[in-house]
């Protein structure tokens, strides 16, 4: 098998392993990761300038921003790699990352981290699984599962330095899914992968929704929009925008209908959608309808009303989009 594979996890690990190998019980905090006013300087460079962030438990959370915005530093602080200069970090309502408390509960794909060059892949993954608190047999089984997930089972005994960049990347992603981590942080998971592999990784991330919290950082805004249900935009070390993807892109507030050459029954649409704001952008031949969502009247209902009117007056529909794209929102906000 080649490539990142769609696999059902071995559910033998039904109980979560904690730092001491015990079972975690009790009510779950609604927030998996919270950063409040976090600052960090590297010499003269202010990497984070008071970042506020809340990642709800069970969400697939996207972290976007330009190069140098502070995404990787945010990840580093969440994982305890980097010490913040100020502010508070909280994981599961239990304080900042502490390996004795969070071992096996937080997993990460670190950016640019290299696996040991001279160690067979299987040995490295078993080592990681054992350090997570798993027993020998369980660790071997989980390592085998991770290799299968990465599509490199046949290379289990190969040394890392003999593998391609793509294979190593997939193994590095798969190691983050060993065990039953509650929070998985993936820093640029699809960068450097071919489109097929990238798509498989996206599918795997989406499949984790509700089972665990996944935070994905990426430059690819279309990817974030497709995969994530929550998003935060970081720029110059601050979170400039955060919320659900639906809210940020206005999916329940705005509908855009692009028309091909032909009639534009604007007045008819305005009459049909009385109470909503209807604008016509001549340059892009797009009707922009802004509405207030309420029970019984969502985006789909507005689209239905608008399309009936347009088609009834022989308009030619080219495209219908709910809200703005994340990319457009990002460009407008930055």
């Amino acid at each position: 098998m080649s490539g990142f594979c769609r696999l059902e996890r071995d559910r033998s690990l039904a109980t979560r392993v904690d730092g001491g190998g015990g079972v975690m019980t009790g009510a779950l905090a609604p927030i998996a990761l919270s950063l409040r006013g976090v600052t960090k300087r590297f010499g003269a460079i202010r990497a984070l300038d008071g970042v506020d962030l809340e990642v709800p438990r069970g969400a697939v959370f996207g972290l976007v921003g330009p190069n140098g915005a502070g995404k990787t530093t945010t990840f580093g602080i969440a994982c305890g790699y980097v010490r913040p200069d100020g502010g508070t970090v909280d994981l599961f309502g239990e304080g900042p990352f502490d390996p004795s408390k969070h071992r096996g509960r937080v997993a990460v794909l670190p950016q640019d981290a290299q696996l040991g060059r001279d160690i067979p892949l299987l040995d490295q993954l078993v080592y990681f699984a054992r350090l997570q608190g798993l027993g020998k047999q369980e660790a071997r089984s989980q390592a085998g599962w991770a290799l299968e997930l990465a599509g490199v089972t046949s290379r289990a005994r190969a040394r890392s330095r003999t593998l391609s960049h793509g294979m190593l990347k997939r193994v590095a992603i798969a190691q983050a899914f060993i065990g039953e981590a509650e929070l998985v942080l993936l820093d640029e998971p699809t960068s450097g992968l071919d489109p097929v592999q990238a798509e498989r990784i996206r599918e795997h991330i989406v499949a984790q929704r509700h089972d665990r919290t996944v935070v994905v950082s990426s430059h690819n805004l279309n990817e974030i929009e497709a995969v994530c249900d929550h998003v935060a935009m970081i720029d110059h070390g601050r979170a400039v925008l955060a919320g659900t993807v639906a809210a940020i892109t206005g999916k329940n507030e705005e509908v855009r209908i692009t028309l091909a050459e032909g009639p534009v029954p604007l007045d008819m649409v305005k009459t049909a959608l009385a109470g909503d704001s209807v604008d016509w952008d001549e340059a892009s031949r797009t009707l922009v309808i802004r509405f207030v969502s309420r029970p019984g009247r969502g985006a789909e209902d507005v689209i239905g009303q608008a399309l009936r009117t347009l088609l009834g007056h022989h308009a030619r529909i080219s495209q219908v989009v709910k809200g703005r794209s994340l990319e457009r929102t990002y460009l407008e906000s930055s």
Partner: peptide, 13 residues
């Protein structure tokens, strides 16, 4: 230097 430590110190102290 090669950041391989990041795979480990997320799992142990």
């Amino acid at each position: 230097q090669d950041r391989g430590i990041r795979f480990v110190v997320i799992r142990t102290g």
